[in-house]
Design a protein around this nucleic acid. Structure first.
Lengths: 346, 346
DNA sequence: TTGAAAGCGCTAACAG
DNA sequence: CTGTTAGCGCTTTCAA
């Protein structure tokens, strides 16, 4: 019994064939007799052979690994995108190497450079902001790159995004159909294109219904739960107060729901709340949140699929793939209550 | 300008030195004159050279990458552990390769096998359940393994865990000190050791205060938000109802808070709620959740540090490292209201 | 259907 | 201080 990891040569010796034959068996190549194949498999099992990834990568010129670059793995929506990417990669027999930038921009382009040299065959950038900082390193990398879920308008790489604008329009239509005419908006961050698109949907939804957007009905929520709480509290302090609130993401919608309850009002009886994203928690809270679903896992999947298309040289790569969003009607929305005008006099 | 990636040889040619010299410069080895070093750096910059990871790994026998195996990256507490591991790895100049098992146990041990053969130098297993399924593959792997945040009692590998029992005791002491005598418990999952330990802390906290544990005051919450909601609803339907609820994790505590509000009661005035974990959201909800903090990021850090100790052959590796937990007193707990006995007669 | 030769890009060990 | 030699474990030709 030799010490150290078992190599191809060990298996070859054991099965009394050449290393090449073992390699072919391991990689399911054709042109090996059933008997030999059988014998090699037995040797592999007996020895517990596992191919060395580094050697394989160096020799074959590919790693069978896809890199995923994310700012951090905390936010749920990012987790969902990764989950989709993970499934697609798994189905294709590839590994995923997840790398977080942690906002540490200093060495990041260098980091990305490392990834693209012998560590991964392709890169999925899941970034909410611009990808500009990396463009240089990325462009000189010799691996395909696909950007996911950023609102970045003019990326030099193929993009996968969700239809933020029409999602927002759907949310507004839902609220308007229920009879709401005074609808507050909790904005995300002005520096993301996604946030801007959702806001545009809010405004144009209003205009389409013949309503006039009021600046006072728009508050910043910074995509956070406390931000949503504060924004909703301010909104509900208006006279007359809105009967419905559309939040730019689920997290700030959760905060809005808390604010409504804290003011002694009920969701949805007194105030309707709509979110955006449909993170898993949206269906877990009480009342379950009506929200606009971004196909997050599908976006991850689509990103990987684009990458595979490039790698395998098959199928077209869409420069800008925009996936549809959809309203998920749950329990946090209802028609405005007739006689009840929320009051927050304290 | 040669096509394809720039190699060491290209740099060597450009700087008019041997490949070995370039290698030494790249790896910051001593024994190179300042002038030569300078010249090599210039060539590297001009050519945009980046070392090939696969070749380096194969040649040097190490990958400078640590593997992290998690069931999935969704749950916040896992994200936090990874964040800690990520920071520690980054400080040590190592990459993290995150691999999810997605409950797909079929090919997992094989998957882990692949990782340990040329892809990573060490493995951090972040698993809530047992690691038994992998033990075989792991033991034959030629890389160190450390297990984090599982309640697994007898792992064959070094363990990093939190002190669930004393955390639960602290939560109970807090509630008892506030004057609560009727305290409900929302259990996690009976199949995790962590859940059992927390339950033990609940029971013994009661006993120490001279109170008798009542089976009716314990409900399963399955660690989920709807589970916590349902459990709390049942608990508050008792007569007399508990004045405080201790949930086995933050998620089920959020559900409990919702249930309290839904019954027309207030947190903490009518019912106090304590969670466990201190995920980021705990401080973001309203009212901010009083909870037992598991040092999740520290656990990730500690796991990586243990791995590094093994890899560098320095420092001791603790077979079982149990990190302290701590009560974080926020806004969801208060003394029981004197005259008020919650009623849920409907 | 099988195998021999060559080399992927890098680094460890040693020699000059 | 610098360079030579050898080889990591595998796969790609191409020949038998």
């Amino acid at each position: 019994m030799p010490t150290g990891p078992v190599t191809l040569a060990d298996v070859a010796r054991r099965a009394d064939v050449s290393r090449m034959t073992v390699s072919k068996v391991v990689n399911n190549k054709a042109g090996i007799s059933e008997a030999t194949r059988e014998r090699v498999y037995r040797a592999i099992d007996e020895l517990g052979y596992v191919a060395n990834g580094a050697a394989r990568a160096l020799s074959a010129g590919r790693t069978n690994t896809l890199g995923v670059v994310v700012p951090s793995i905390g936010p749920q929506y990012i987790s969902e995108v990764i989950r989709g990417a993970d499934m697609a990669a798994r189905e294709a027999g590839l590994d995923l190497l997840i790398s977080t930038t942690q906002e540490d921009l200093r060495h990041e382009s260098q980091n990305v450079g490392r990834l693209t040299h012998g560590l991964v065959d392709g890169l999925l950038m899941v970034l909410p902001r611009s990808v500009d900082q990396y463009s240089q390193a990325l462009l000189r990398a010799h691996v395909p790159v696909v950007v996911v879920a950023t609102g970045n308008q003019n990326s030099p790489f193929p993009l996968v995004d969700a239809d933020h604008y029409h999602g927002a329009r759907a949310a507004m239509r839902h609220l308007l159909d229920l009879g709401h005419t005074r609808i507050g908006f909790i904005a995300g961050r002005a520096d993301t294109a996604a946030s801007l698109e959702r806001f545009r949907g809010y405004q144009e939804g209003l205009l389409t219904a013949g309503l006039i957007p009021e600046p006072l009905l728009v508050e910043e929520g910074h995509y956070t739960q406390p931000g949503g709480f504060a924004a909703a509290t301010r909104l509900l302090g208006l006279a007359p107060a809105p009967t419905a609130i559309f939040a730019a993401n689920d997290l700030s919608a959760f905060g809005a729901v808390e604010a409504v309850k804290e003011l002694g009002l009920r969701v949805p009886q007194d105030v309707s709340v709509v979110g955006f994203d449909d993170i898993p928690q949206a269906s877990q809270v009480f009342p379950a949140l009506t929200t606009v679903r971004q196909p997050l896992t599908e976006m991850g999947r689509a990103g990987v699929k684009q990458l595979l298309n490039v790698l395998h040289g098959v199928g077209a790569v869409t420069d800008r793939l925009v996936l549809a969003t959809e309203l998920i009607d749950r329990a946090s929305t209802a028609p405005p209550s007739a006689g009840r005008v929320p009051s927050t006099a304290n």
